[in-house]
Structure formats: structure tokens, C-alpha cells
Design a protein around this nucleic acid. Sequence first.
DNA 1: AGTTAGAATGAAAGCGGTTACAATTCGGTT
DNA 2: AACCGAATTGTAACCGCTTTCATTCTAACT
Lengths: 336, 336
Amino acid sequence: MPAPTIYDVAQRAGVSSATVSRVLNNHPLVKPETRDRVMQAIKELDYQVNLLAAALMTKQTRTIGLIVPDIANPFFAEIARGVEEAGAAAGFNVVMCNTLEQAEREGRYIQVLRQKHVDGIIFTSAYLDDRSLTPLIEAGFPVVLISREVEDVAVDSVRTDDFEGGYQATRHLLGLGHRRIALLAGPLRTKPSLDRKKGYEAALERAQIPLDPGLLLSGEFSIESGKAMAQHLLQSTRDFTAIVAGNDLIAAGAIKICRQHGLSVPTDVSVVGYDRTILAELIEPELTSVAQQMHEMGRQAMELLLQRIQGTQTREPVQVVLPPRLVVAGSTAPPR
Amino acid sequence: MPAPTIYDVAQRAGVSSATVSRVLNNHPLVKPETRDRVMQAIKELDYQVNLLAAALMTKQTRTIGLIVPDIANPFFAEIARGVEEAGAAAGFNVVMCNTLEQAEREGRYIQVLRQKHVDGIIFTSAYLDDRSLTPLIEAGFPVVLISREVEDVAVDSVRTDDFEGGYQATRHLLGLGHRRIALLAGPLRTKPSLDRKKGYEAALERAQIPLDPGLLLSGEFSIESGKAMAQHLLQSTRDFTAIVAGNDLIAAGAIKICRQHGLSVPTDVSVVGYDRTILAELIEPELTSVAQQMHEMGRQAMELLLQRIQGTQTREPVQVVLPPRLVVAGSTAPPR
DNA sequence: AGTTAGAATGAAAGCGGTTACAATTCGGTT
DNA sequence: AACCGAATTGTAACCGCTTTCATTCTAACT
């Protein structure tokens, strides 16, 4: 038999469908006695609302889209967790979309999410052009960005102060006495990588240490890239005592390669990671790393989105900037 | 202005809404010329179908639910990635739901997913009772389980042969010459942990080594639990040369504790993990671990679900069992 | 008893599509 | 030129709910 509808309930309770709907949405003007009869009928029929039909009228699906490069990356998984939790608390569901860094996929997801009438979309960092994102924002569709920017467009966003993070990582090493510090950066086409690099440069500058282009490499946010960059670095010079890595994965790769070359961490080379994912505490020695509050970023992004969605009046876009926090562990020590 | 509807398109193209609908769903019986006119109108209005309205008629949302304990756990994140990819390939979206191991949350998610009329639900392992799951399956709702079982109910499922995995891990250590092998298992209320334990026991039995209850602990799938179990073990005895861990996290925790007690891995203690998540290759030394094909499990689960959803005729439930694969690395060596 | 303002409920019009069925068109026959 | 079946297209009902507006009750007041 087909699932019972609001009419079946109405009939059984001896009222009209309008009344059932009122009960469902606890409208105040329903006589308690009537409400009870309806509830009874609902129970007896094991009735479940059809939220599709409801959404068709209310224009609210209580569903949002979350676009990430790759949910299997711990950094994004942690953010997703924050988003989902905050969403669930407010009665919203989250559709997860992995772009795999492909702009075309992102575009397709945006399209189908709109067709499914999600109430809003959260975008996380990716190296994609903004061709499909910009029109969305300009159309006034609720959007929040995490660790991502769109040129010349005002939009809600959440990010970590990556300049400060890069600065702190470098200051820490300088404070230990290091002078020759390499940077194995992530992709410089992304704002976070760029900011971290600027922080690194600012710290060196302030310590009056000239930048050495030979100590500055950039690649991807992966173990492989970390290995490759370290390999490259070691082939060109051994005249460095510390490494600032673009993230924990790069750091892990670099440490492996250093070891292979007979350099011990932290005795010969100190290494600082970034993100402080769960990986950081598993690596031996534990990785000194700049912590980002991924879970919190996800949570706040969802909050901002909800404000937009449920917002009575439109407010100016806000940019939430969370502080990074250097967590010192065993991978850094004074140079010998 | 409100978003254009199918009627706006129809009017602009000078046809009826039915024809527009036919074009949208590329029904074969539309004159090419008419199709062009409609497409033109669609483009000009930047028309987007409202899939909610469509779903109301077709009873298909092309959306499925994925219920996991915690997306931030690399094991589930990897599965989620497989599910999402396979789904995307077939034009399905995935709503992600984190239960945090709470049965009540699982129940709520199931309810709202049904109300939103998802086409099916994939459940991953969790230590929950099946009160809300069983009725779903019995109602014929498309469901696939990953690493999870429901008593006395036939249902599609995908899992790894965990008996074999536990067996292989233990055999490997036996082959190296170990005789005193501890098991730091995950929660024994779950089938996977139980099967791995049975595999461990079978391997020992076959080698004619009596089981020593003192070498058998069980806890949770976490670093902390791994530490606690190792601590416990070391306090009661040092008479063991190897550890089979319930998963990589437990292994990582155990290794840390062993080190703290002055035992080196693998010289003094060999350790085998399970899952072979990305963690395994980051730990120093790299962790010998039984690989599960998480991504593949996710993919196949989605395939099974799609068969159910789109299936013309109902087929018998199938149980897909994937083989584990022992990946030997630096954390295991012969006892000295 | 007759009013009357709320309170409670019902009737019915959408929301934006899909689709069964009817109607129209059209090239080819006879 | 009338006729026919297949190819196209249009009409209108329906999916299951929300919500406006009208209607009916109720109870408190003259």
C-alpha cells in the first residue's frame, strides 16, 4: 500500500487536511482536543510527512550543500564534521560533494544542488576558478567560504590567520636559534599557502635574515609532494637546519626523506608542520605544528550560513578569522 | 523576480509545458526543431528544473543517505569517498550523517531521511542496536550495510573478511618466529572485532600455541584505548614479543607506550595494525598492517544500493566479502 | 435572546513538475 | 481528394503539502 498522506490522517481523525497540517507545524490555533485526535491518527497510521511536498510550498529544504576537494583528507573531514554537527543541531542535513579539485565537477555540483533547492552552500578551499561560484553569490544565494576567497566579491567566510600561522612557525624556529630555515610551501595559487609564506618572510625579515630563494619551494599538500620537495632541497643544498612545511603531510614526507639522507629530526633538522591533524601526534617524534581549529571553522561556517538562510534582514558579509596556535612537540630543537 | 518555471519556458518557446518536460527528460518523440526552440528558451531564461517538484511525481530524489559514526575517522572518510564517487557517477547525491555512536541520533536520521524521501540508505559499522534499522529493511526500503550486520535479517552488505585478516596478521608474526603474541582488540561487541579475534585464535591454535587470556585485551578503536591497553598489558607482563592491534589507531597508541617503557619497535616488540589507513605509512617505523579496501567497500555498497533502487526485479540480498591484504612494513621483525 | 469578537476549522488554490489520454498534424495511400 | 496510422503536441489531473480566505463555533456581553 502507498504511504499514508495527510488526507488519510485527516480522514481518520475526522478533520480536514488543513488542520492536520496545522498540528504538524504546531500552529497555536488548534484545539488541544483536536490536536490529540490528529496525533492519535498519525500514530495509528505511522504517518510520515513528505518533506518534498512541504518544501515545494515553503521553499525550504533544510538541507545544505558542502563542497570539499576530498573528504578523505583529514583536514576537510574535520571541517565536514563541524559543519554536519552544527547543521544537525539546527535541523539541517548536509549533502557532501567531492570535487577532486576539478572545476567542472564543482560547477555540476552547484547546479544540481540548486536544482534540489538546498538552502545554502558551504565551499572549502580549492584551487578552482570562480566562474561558477561568483554568479551564485551575486544572485544572493546563501554561501559561506572556508579558507577560500573570491576576488572582488563580498561574501561570508571563515579562515585561519595564515599569515600569523606562518609567522609563528618561523618565529619559533628563530627563537630556537635557527638561521637557515627552508619553506616547503603548498600550492602558491591558494591564499592560505600564500599567506603562510608571507608570514614566514615577515618573520625572517624582522630577524634581519635575508631571504634565500634556494630555500623556498612550493608543491602540493601531499606526502609525495613533501618528499619531492625535500629531495629537491637536499640535492641543491644542505645548508639549512630547519623546515617550515605547508602542512602536516608535507612535513611527514620531508621527515621521511631527511631520515633517508641520514639526517635526524630534530637533531639535524627541525620541522614544523601545519594544521595539526591527528597525523601530527602519530609521527615520531611528535610534530610541532600550527594548529587550525578545523572543527570550529566548520561550525562557524554553518552558523553564518544559517544566519543568512534564516536571516530576517540581510547583513553585511562578515569574515571570521580564527587564530592559529603553535603546538610545540618533539620535531623541533635548537640547531647543534 | 521568482525563478522561471517550466511554464515560463513553455510560453517563451510557444509550446505547452508538457513539451518542455519532454525536452527536459529527452523523450524521443519531440521534433528536433521544437526541441531546439525549447532549448533556446531554457538558455535565455537560465531556467533550472525544480527537482523537488519532479520528485513529487516520479518518487525519485536521486539522493541517498550515508550513516557513519564519525566522518572525521579516516576509515569512514575513505568509505564515504568511495560512496560519494560511485554515487556521483550515477547522478546521485549523498547526505552525510554522523551518529557519534548514538542510537537515538541514528533513529532521528533515519526518520528525516525517509521524510526527505532519499532513495536508499547505506549504514556503516556502529555499535548500535538495530531497533530503527530492522523495520526499515523489513519494509523493503533499499538499504546496504558496510561492516555491519543485523540479526536474522537478510540484507545487502559489504565487508572485509576479518577472520582472514586476523588470521593473516597472526600468521605473519608466527612466521617470523613469535610465540607470545598479544591481541589488543577493538570493541568485541562488533562483528569485525570479534572476527579478527577468531582469526587470531585460529592461527595460534593451528600453530599449537595455547591461548593466554592474559595476552588478550579489548577496548575501543582509538589511540587512547591503544595506549591504555598497552599500559595494562605491560603492567601485567613483559612476556610477549608481538602485538596484533584491532586497528591502526590502537597500534599507534601501543607503539607510543612501548617506547615509553623502553621497548623498541620492532626490535623488542613487533606490531601489526589493521585497516592500513594513511596513518600506517606515517608512523615510524612504517606500520605492518592488514589493508581493507575502504574505498572499494564504499563503491560496491553504492553499486548494490543502486541495483536495489533501480532494480527491475527484486533479487536476493547479497553479501560481498572483500579480501584483506597484509602489507608488511617496518614494524614487524623476528623476535630477538 | 441577540450581538459580536475571537477561536477553530474547512475549502480550495497553488507550489512546479510528470504523464495518461486526447487531439492535431502530416506524409503517404488509394 | 478522402483516409489512415504514426508522429507530435496539448490538456488536465495529480503528486502531498501549505496557506489564504471564508465559514462556523463559542463564549462573553448587552
